[in-house]
Amino acid sequence: MSRVLIADDEDSMRSLVARAIAMDGHEIVTAEDGAEALEILSRENGAFDLLLSDIKMPIMDGIALALTAARDFPDVTILLMTGFADQRERASGLDAIVHDVVTKPFSVADIRSAVARALASRKA
Rank of each mutant, 00 (worst) to 15 (best):
A31V: 14
D33T: 02
G34C: 05
A35P: 09
A35W: 14
E36F: 09
E36H: 11
E36I: 08
E36N: 00
A37D: 08
A37V: 08
L38Q: 09
E39P: 00
E39G: 01
I40H: 08
I40S: 02
I40C: 04
L41N: 04
L41K: 08
S42N: 06
S42T: 13
R43F: 14
R43C: 01
R43N: 05
E44G: 01
E44I: 01
N45L: 13
A47F: 07
A47W: 11
A47L: 06
A47K: 06
F48L: 04
F48K: 00
F48I: 02
D49L: 09
D49I: 07
D49E: 15
L50V: 05
L51S: 08
L52W: 11
L52D: 09
S53R: 05
S53D: 08
S53P: 14
D54H: 11
I55T: 07
K56N: 12
K56F: 13
I59M: 13
D61A: 10
D61H: 02
G62W: 14
G62I: 10
I63C: 08
A64C: 05
A64P: 00
A64N: 11
L65S: 03
L65F: 13
L65V: 06
A66V: 07
T68Q: 15
T68D: 15
T68S: 15
A70D: 15
A70W: 13
A70R: 13
R71V: 09
D72L: 12
D72Y: 07
D72N: 14
F73A: 03
P74C: 03
D75P: 07
T77P: 00
T77R: 15
I78T: 03
I78A: 02
L79K: 00
L80A: 04
G83D: 09
G83V: 04
G83H: 04
F84G: 00
A85E: 15
D86W: 14
Q87A: 12
R88F: 12
E89L: 09
E89H: 05
E89C: 00
R90M: 11
A91Y: 02
A91Q: 07
A91G: 09
A91P: 06
A91V: 01
S92E: 15
S92V: 04
S92I: 07
S92T: 05
D95F: 13
A96G: 15
A96W: 13
A96T: 07
A96P: 03
I97M: 10
I97A: 02
H99D: 00
H99L: 05
V101R: 01
V101S: 05
T103H: 09
T103S: 12
K104H: 00
P105D: 08
F106T: 04
F106L: 07
F106W: 09
S107G: 12
V108G: 00
A109L: 10
A109S: 10
A109D: 12
A109H: 08
D110A: 09
D110H: 11
D110M: 03
D110R: 08
I111V: 11
R112T: 00
S113C: 02
S113N: 06
S113K: 01
A114L: 03
V115Q: 03
V115P: 07
V115T: 06
A116M: 02
A116K: 08
R117I: 01
R117C: 00
A118T: 06
A118K: 02
